[in-house]
Amino acid sequence: DCARVRAGSLEHESWPPPPPPPTPGVSPHPVVRAFVSHFSGRAVAGHLTRVAAPLRTFSVLEPRGPGGCAQRRRATVEDTAVPAGCRVAQNGGFFRMGTGECLGNVVSDGRRVSSSGGLQNAQFGIRRDGTLVTGYLSEEEVLDTVNPFIQLLSGVVWLIRNGSIYINESQAIECDETQETGSFSKFVNVISARTAVGHDRKGQLVLFHADGQTEQRGINLWEMAEFLLGQDVVNAINLDGGGSATFVLNGTLASYPSDHCQDNMWRCPRHVSTVVCVHEPHCQPPDCSGHGTCVDGHCECTGHFWRGTACNELDCGPSNCSQHGLCTETGCHCDAGWMGSNCSEECPLGWYGPGCQRPCQCEHQCPCDPQTGNCSVSQVKQCLWPAESTSRAGEMAFFTRTTWLVLTLVLVFLLLISTVANVSLLLGSRAERNRHLGGEYAYHPLQEMNGELLATEKDQTEESHSPFKD
């Protein structure tokens, strides 16, 4: 409140990132527990939420999404949480009631939204490597680019530091003595609805919410700190309370707000500023570098060649384009003179260029340089084979001569067969004709010769006219 610290290192605790799930005794999903406990004889209801792997499942949200702080929007926690897909959501940092201005530091999913300019209030954040940070930060630390904050928000009063209640020290650091009529002290000690954020010894992020109404129901900061200590919380800061305290579970209001509606009969959730949200795991980066789909916190890369947890590495296989090409998202892009899926094949004669896509433009169908397409043709229009292609040209000439020889032999053989077949047919035809002319069984019946029947026919005629002959 009172002092800006631009540079240097201030009092804060850094908790190393928890091991990735699954971790024995740690649920991979957020665990929400409801309680109704007695504080100094008063029954107070609320919720405690533990979140494993908070780097991927916890976000600080601007009201109604990105740009909300710049536009000084205010929205109910539900209105901000539902579009963001929050499974659990609570109100977050403090804000100016009249203008809607977000107060303190706000870093939302890696975007620095609001800066306190080094003003000393309690901070809670997660750095890029998953380190949980609680305490006071200089402006230089907030703007760190080596291991920047991915999520960061400001509260008022560092409740628990390294396993011990830190409220008295916080009051001194956060400038209690400058406040009029002890308003800060009252803020600490009055019973009300409260919210807090911190982490436990397992590195799980902890969200706390207690229902109440200022000076009538609820708990003070001491009671909240004691409750959190009993839940193994190591570091925690106090967030906005009173009518701002709101708890939303699966998109539905699950707490009893203390603000009245316009109709005094009912209670209404306040339109607040930032929201703390527990969601399904985000990928790193959330859009999988534009080359994949985030499924349960893991990028499933699109195409056949994007690889890596962030889908930002191109991989064309172990041959790596045979060192003759560049791996692209569509496969190997071969250098000039090479072709094939792995760029392992040289251009065939008559082709050149990247991927051997261009035909040579040489006279007399001479081959060209497979890389540049340059032709080597003499003034007398005779190919001058490039030294490196002489052997290939010789192979081609040999291949051509052999082909022609085989083709000729095959044709000659077919011609011979055809000749033999024709001769055979001709001779066979003549023999057949001769056989018919001088054959034994050629029979040409004659009806009459010189007007008389033949003797045999005569006999047959007589027999037909004597039916009683034996």
Binding site: F187, G243, H260, C261, D263
Partner: peptide, 24 residues
């Protein structure tokens, strides 16, 4: 619309509303 709008009547402020926070 008004039936669901909060009156913002449960104020719990860490610092006095009467003065802006000034730098030492």
């Amino acid at each position: 619309l008004g039936s669901r709008v909060s009156r913002d009547d449960d104020l719990l402020l860490p610092y006095s509303r009467a003065r802006a926070r000034t730098l030492r």
